[in-house]
């Protein structure tokens, strides 16, 4: 009778999980295959796709727009992910203590994260405005010359990075959860052994929190390589394509110029890059991520 029971349980299991399995087939698996096919075609949605072999990928290899887009996306990711992790870490370090009013500060630091991206963009365009904005006022307060912010190609990326740092509260929350997960007895034992503040930080906090660093890095890189909303709501890729991030370029190719075959090829390249990056972090993690209770 046991087998009949387990068959019924299995059927129930498939039924309960059917929304996500059907969803993945409809909205992930099938689209992934289709987009791979589109990437080898010329396709503008009005006419059916025409097979052109690897033309899209060859075009990409010689497309300066793509290389520039890849470069700025990589630069943005390479700076903004570590910088916002660091700021989030510092904020979490400051917040991780029992002081009156600490909850209020946590709320304040996290608040920018919940601001809708369009409002965020409109607000920061105002802050960065060369004449009526406050960013240059701030520089003036410190005796620095005004900066061009969103108005010049060379200052767009740093400006977007700074704007992104305003939302470092997102990683702060994950750091805080990590700190709270470190058992207090580790610190107590270290204090008994006479370990200095720095030793305790370096030999307890850092290894114990390394899975959080790992998680933050992976999610940060994946998110940052697909930066889109912040850019569309502020510079929309300009000036002079200086903020034409990969996702912005893909969106414009797909929905503005209706070059959906080329956009699909770009999407696949983005996918492979994200995959390689994730695999690289995973591989390296074996040497620096410490899991509690893991036997080595």
């Amino acid at each position: 009778m046991k087998s009949r029971k387990s068959v019924r349980e299995a059927i129930a299991g498939y039924l309960f999980t059917s929304p996500v399995t059907i969803g993945i087939l409809l909205f992930t698996a099938w689209p992934v295959l289709q987009s791979l096919y589109y990437s080898f075609t010329k396709f503008n949605i009005i006419k059916s796709p025409v097979w052109i072999g690897t033309d899209n990928y060859e075009k990409m290899a010689h497309d300066p727009e793509f290389w520039q887009s890849l470069r700025i996306t990589a630069v943005y990711t390479g700076i903004s992910v570590p910088a916002s992790l660091l700021i989030g870490f510092l904020l979490a370090l400051l917040l991780h203590r029992q002081l009156p009013g600490i909850g209020l500060f946590r709320t304040i630091f996290y608040l920018p994260v919940v601001v809708p991206v369009v409002a965020l963009g409109i607000l920061w365009k105002q802050l960065y405005s060369p004449t009526f904005g406050f960013a240059n006022e701030l520089l003036k307060m410190f005796g620095l010359p005004p900066y061009t912010w969103f108005s010049q190609p060379e200052s767009v990326i740093p400006s977007l990075i700074i704007m992104g740092l305003w939302q470092a509260g997102g990683s702060m929350i994950i750091w805080l959860a990590g700190f709270q997960g470190i058992p207090a007895h580790l610190y107590e034992a270290a204090i008994v052994d006479g370990a200095s503040r720095f030793r305790r930080f370096w030999n307890i906090t850092i290894p114990m929190i390394s899975p959080v660093i790992f998680f933050n890095l992976i999610m940060g890189f994946i998110g940052s390589f697909q930066v889109f909303g912040q850019v569309m709501a502020t510079t929309a890729g300009g000036p002079l394509n200086a903020s034409n991030f990969l996702m912005v370029m893909i969106y414009k190719k797909a929905f503005r110029t209706l070059d959906m075959g080329y956009a699909s090829a770009l999407g696949w390249v983005l996918f492979v890059i994200v995959l390689l990056l994730t695999a690289f972090i995973f591989r390296s993690s074996r040497s620096w991520v410490h899991y509690e209770g893991e036997v080595r």
Binding site: F27, S35, S264
Partner: peptide, 9 residues
């Protein structure tokens, strides 16, 4: 999986 891959189909 980046949204860019499934977005168009």
């Amino acid at each position: 999986l980046p949204g860019a891959v499934t977005m168009i189909p």
